[in-house]
């Protein structure tokens, strides 16, 4: 018979946090920013079919970094929550804040009660009618939730990207200008091609479903625009 060793709770939490952080840092980064045209989300992602950025509801988008199967499970749960709520009440009653709180509770619970924490960082964004109404919530592996304004960076090499963004971001950016800017901030010294990126936007003022993926050819056009000017 084996007798389990006593492990101090501090040590247990520290080990779990380290484990999750390591997993997340291995993945590539993701950047979301508010601008006059809506909320732009750009991720480094060479895959065309395994998305990091997805639609949750009319004005709400989801983005995740880390282990794909884990954040995709969270994405589907978010869609299920939003659709059930919108069906039971009204489409107007579905909001990002409530969903972000549910994610935070779930991640927090897994972090404290399970053997293995989820190796993910997720973002819930909701575009408003005015840019002052935009919401972005970042939720970490342990359920820590933070409310971001302006821009949010998820995944590895986080600080460098934040630094690069601080100098260039402004609320009055147009969507077209924001795309090359985000690609540059993500890439740093590397020059990211459209095929390395996944981009989507929550369009401000959209009648109903505001989420739109930016296809490769359009992305290439927007990235090229910056270089020629």
């Amino acid at each position: 018979m084996t007798i389990p060793f006593y492990v101090a709770p501090e040590q247990l939490m520290k080990d779990r946090a380290e484990f999750a952080q390591k997993g997340i840092a291995r993945g590539r980064s993701l950047l979301a920013l508010t601008c006059s045209g809506g909320i732009l989300i750009v991720a480094e992602n060479p895959s065309r079919s395994l998305h990091k950025i997805s639609e949750i509801y009319d004005r709400i988008a989801f983005a995740g970094v880390g282990r794909y199967n884990e954040f995709d499970q969270l994405r589907v749960a978010g869609v299920r929550h939003a659709d059930t709520k919108g069906y039971a009440f009204s489409r107007d009653d579905v909001d990002a804040r409530a969903l972000a709180n549910l994610y935070a509770q779930f991640l927090g619970q897994v972090f404290t009660h399970e053997m293995k924490p989820l190796e993910v960082e997720i973002l819930v964004a909701e575009v408003g009618w005015e840019d002052s109404e935009d919401q972005m919530y970042e939720i970490a592996y342990d359920g820590t939730i933070s409310d971001r304004s302006g821009f949010a960076v998820l995944g590895g090499k986080n600080e460098e990207i934040v630094e690069r963004m601080q100098g260039v971001w402004s609320a009055s950016l147009s969507l077209d200008d924001a795309v090359p800017l985000a690609a540059e901030a993500l890439g740093g010294t590397r020059n990211l091609a459209p095929a390395d990126l996944e981009a989507a936007v929550l369009q401000r003022g959209a009648e109903r479903r505001a989420f739109r993926r930016i296809p490769d050819d359009e992305l290439a056009g927007l990235l090229g625009r910056k270089k020629s000017s």
């Binding site: 499970q73 929550h81 059930t84 709520k85 549910l102 779930f106 619970q109």
Partner: peptide, 15 residues
């Protein structure tokens, strides 16, 4: 215990 089946998808994340 934390889950209420009647409103499961609204009160907690439906996983």
């Amino acid at each position: 215990l934390a889950w209420d089946h009647r409103d499961a998808s609204l009160g907690a994340l439906p996983v």
